[in-house]
C-alpha cells in the first residue's frame, strides 16, 4: 500500500502539540531507530493516520480524526525529544 511521509502529520496534530512534530526526534520501541517524525512512513485516510517506523515498520503513532474528536496513541515510541521553542525554530 502506498504511504506518505511524517510531514503530513503536521496538520492533524496542530491542535494536539505545542511543538512542531515533523522536526521532533523519537525512538522506536521495537528497533531503537531514532528519527524525526517527518521521516516516518504515514498511511493516511480513510482510517486516520498510522505512522510507522521507517526502519522496522513498527506502528509508532495512531491518530483518528472523526466528528470533532481526535484520538492519539503513541504506543510505538520509547520517547520523543522536544526541542525548546527557540531551538525548534533553528532546526
Amino acid at each position: 500500500m502506498d504511504h506518505l511521509d511524517g510531514n503530513v502529520l503536521a496538520g492533524p496534530t496542530a491542535d494536539l502539540f505545542l511543538f512542531e512534530p515533523t522536526t521532533t526526534q523519537g525512538q522506536c520501541q521495537s528497533c531503537a531507530d531514532i528519527a524525526m517524525l517527518g521521516q516516518a512512513m504515514v498511511y493516511g485516510q480513510p482510517m486516520g493516520f498510522v505512522a510507522r517506523c521507517r526502519n522496522c515498520d513498527n506502528v509508532l503513532i495512531v491518530i483518528i480524526e472523526r466528528a470533532g474528536q481526535k484520538s492519539l496513541s503513541m504506543r510505538g515510541l520509547r520517547w520523543l525529544r522536544v526541542a525548546d521553542r527557540a531551538m525548534n525554530d533553528r532546526i
Binding site: A14, L37, N88
Partner: peptide, 9 residues
C-alpha cells in the same frame, strides 16, 4: 485552510 504546516521538508 489549516497551516502553514511542516518543518522538515
Amino acid at each position: 485552510l489549516r497551516g502553514p504546516l511542516g518543518g522538515w521538508f
